[in-house]
Design a protein around this nucleic acid. Structure first.
Lengths: 248, 248
DNA sequence: TAGTGGTCTAGACCACGTG
DNA sequence: ACGTGGTCTAGACCACTAC
């Protein structure tokens, strides 16, 4: 760490990047839980022996990545899955008329299985490693709209069971956060079109052969570590996927 | 404009937001063309009578929105549609294996028409106003993959003709930029699944009733002004839509 | 009143690109 | 050598929140 103005960089990384890395380490290590305020910028400046401006630049990037939020006069807070607004960072299905609705989730099945080659690669685990496979039906305004298949690496979710999953009184990502200390902060999604097979059609209340939107998501925690795979089949007759790219 | 440290805000907007607004005005007014360097940060500081730090904060936001790019030692440049990398800010279809390919575009039809209620609303023009309707077939690696229907407000594209459109030696957004001074900087997309009708199926080389991904895009220029509507039908048998959300 | 983040300035030095 | 953006510091004052 260096205090001379404009000096250093012999250590390779800019100071504020290093501070950001250290902050991310602390977040990943659970030093500050979601919903809790970080130390003040002045305190962080002392802690890392840098000026407030450098701390601010590091936090600026965390804010841009929606990992923390600032509240003037209150402090800087770790983003978790408690605030209803964070739900829509990950749930992009809206009625065609645009009004956002909270989905109701119904558990269809909960199984143990072994990871296939593709899942293993995307989850960065060994092929054949134990995983949980969970299927859910999502309703919007009472109507079934989306069918989810979730794949979780068992190692990261010790003692997870159908009972635990079913009896949670929160969202799924909140469960990961509160019970396993896993905070989902980003996701990558790939979309394609598919035809409803008989089973999916029945659950979604459409004809077999109806067109469905297929979403394949990888959910990531700090350091871009993958922690969940999710394949969704969506009936887009009355709903759409909203791609809220870029912009601020 | 105010020079006292920490003062003002009586004028409502923070200084750097005002500077950003003025920069955007100049960009929209064509003072700096895409590909050209803005005045240096020091010059802009003199011009708006603010410190360099304030200019930098304004430009930071324009960089985050991909409206300009900085190159250390060279300057800050207006983003246009010349660099091949900018293409993929707007074209999100990639082969399932992930390798990005440049699409080849074939013009299918070019017509004049009147805007319907929905198009007019989304383009912010009067219902019944003159529009161009253009249909294109896009190929990736020689195979037809996407069918586009483009709607343009005729008023903003004076003297556009099939000949002009067909004989362009560049991308479509490059044509807008170079001939009409319209720089597409953002887009909003809504996705759904559909079935191929007979005509689309034939053009895309799939069976009628095959599942297609439908993308409805509104393309925006500075100040979030809509300048183009585009509905795309994509055969996702061997390609996917990549949603590269958030993150830096 | 005290503490927090938000804005704005000023100036130093570094790294990069061009001539 | 010069000009550009990139990093870092220091300090002032404002706006908001909580007590």
């Amino acid at each position: 760490m260096n205090l001379r103005p404009g000096a250093d960089t012999g250590g390779q990384l800019p100071l504020y990047k290093e501070v950001k890395r250290l902050l991310t380490e602390s977040l990943a290590g659970g030093e500050w839980q979601p919903g809790v305020a970080l130390p003040s910028e002045a305190k962080l400046g002392e802690r890392y022996r840098v000026s407030i401006g450098t701390v601010r630049k590091a936090i600026d990037e965390l804010v841009a990545e929606r990992i923390v939020v600032r509240h003037q006069g209150r402090g800087t807070f770790v983003v978790g899955h408690n605030a209803p607004r964070t739900l829509f960072h990950f749930f992009h299905i809206v009625p065609a008329d645009g009004t956002k609705l909270q989905p109701q989730v119904e558990l269809l099945s909960f199984e143990r299985a072994k990871a296939g080659a593709d899942s293993a690669m995307r989850l960065n685990i060994a092929p054949g490693a134990a995983v949980f496979m969970i299927r859910n039906l999502l309703r919007l305004g009472g109507k079934p709209v989306e069918l989810d298949e979730i794949t979780l690496p068992a190692e990261r979710f010790p003692r997870l069971s159908e009972k635990v999953f079913r009896e949670r009184d929160s969202t799924i990502y909140q469960l990961y956060q509160e019970r396993y200390g896993i905070n989902v902060v980003h996701s990558a999604e790939r979309l394609s079109a598919a035809l409803a097979d008989r089973a999916s059609a029945k659950l979604l209340g459409v004809a077999a052969g109806a067109p469905l939107l297929r979403i394949r998501r990888t959910a990531l925690t700090y350091h871009d570590l993958p922690v969940e795979l999710r394949t969704s089949l969506v009936n887009t007759a009355e709903h759409e996927y909203f791609s809220d790219l870029g912009k601020s």
